[in-house]
Simulated assay, not measured.
Amino acid sequence: MKEQIIEIMSRVFELPVSDFPEDIKQKNIDNWDSLRHLNLIIELEEAFDKSFEPEEIAEMTSLDKIISYIK
Rank of each mutant, 00 (worst) to 15 (best):
Q4R: 15
K65Y: 06
E56G: 11
E55G: 07
D49Y: 10
T61W: 10
D33N: 09
E3L: 13
S68N: 03
I24E: 04
D30R: 13
F13E: 01
R36F: 00
R11L: 09
K65Q: 14
I8D: 05
E43Q: 08
E7K: 07
E53Q: 08
I41F: 00
N31Y: 09
V17S: 12
E14I: 10
K65V: 02
D23N: 03
E14R: 08
F48L: 11
L38F: 04
E22G: 08
D64G: 05
P16I: 01
F52S: 09
P21T: 03
V12L: 14
E7C: 07
I67H: 10
Y69D: 07
S68L: 05
S34M: 06
L38D: 01
V12C: 03
S68K: 14
A47C: 13
E55F: 15
E45P: 15
I5M: 13
E14G: 01
I57C: 14
T61I: 14
I6A: 06
R36P: 00
E46W: 07
V17L: 13
P21K: 04
F20E: 02
I41L: 00
D33P: 00
V17C: 07
D33Q: 05
I41P: 00
R36I: 00
I57Q: 09
V17H: 08
F52V: 14
W32H: 05
F20K: 05
S10F: 14
A58T: 04
S51V: 15
D19N: 05
I41N: 00
L35E: 05
D64A: 08
L15M: 11
I57P: 00
Q4C: 14
Q26P: 03
D64N: 08
M60Y: 02
I67G: 10
I41C: 00
I24A: 09
E59W: 01
S68Y: 04
K65W: 05
